[in-house]
């Protein structure tokens, strides 16, 4: 059985896209394979890792379990849309600064989940950060640098001084 393709339109990172795909294709597949937005990753395709996280109308969801059709007419933000032109988003800047992105495969998912957290809660505690990021798995970093990067990004977004601690970069 081959269901006919349908024409889907969405706004991705502020740009309008139209593309035709079969109904069973997920947003993950269409973003990566049809729109060449390969910054969104996948590690399980079953909702079990968070690598495929994107924002749909501002809410972080798992693109491996959302049909592309369900994103029709919505606003999708991927990692490619996080930076402001050449200027890195504070999350990106501190992920880079602290090494919160080792292989980087999980980073897009973490940063998009964190973006929403910081919008809802500009001054989260470490515990709130843990919780907000508890749908994303990272196998490289041990999460600590990710927590620290989110904390620093929050500070900068609040307009406060955001300098990494000596211990974060040098150990004790």
């Amino acid at each position: 059985m081959t269901a006919p393709k349908v024409l889907g339109g969405f706004v991705v990172n502020g740009e309008r896209h139209q593309t035709a795909f079969q109904p069973h294709r997920t947003l993950l597949e269409v973003l990566r394979e049809d729109l060449d937005l390969t910054g969104t990753k996948h590690g399980c395709e079953l909702g079990e890792c968070g690598a495929c996280t994107v924002l749909v109308d501002g809410t972080p969801v798992l693109s491996c379990l959302v049909l592309a059709l369900e994103a029709q007419g919505k606003d999708v933000t991927t990692i490619e849309g996080l930076a402001d032109g050449p200027d890195l988003h504070p999350l990106q800047d501190f992920f880079a600064e602290l090494g919160a992105s080792q292989c980087g495969y999980c980073s897009a998912g973490f940063m998009l989940a964190a973006k929403k957290l910081l919008e809802d809660n500009p001054d989260p505690t470490r515990d709130e950060i843990r919780r907000a990021l508890s749908g994303n798995i990272c196998r490289c970093t041990g999460y600590i640098k990710i927590f620290e990067a989110v904390e620093l990004a929050a500070r900068r977004l609040r307009g406060e001084d955001a300098t990494p601690s000596r211990e974060a970069l040098h150990g004790q």
């Binding site: 079969q22 109904p23 997920t26």
Partner: peptide
């Protein structure tokens, strides 16, 4: 990539 089987989609 693990993919969905093919189907027809309805959206009432």
């Amino acid at each position: 990539m693990l993919r969905l089987p093919r189907f027809t989609y309805h959206r009432p």
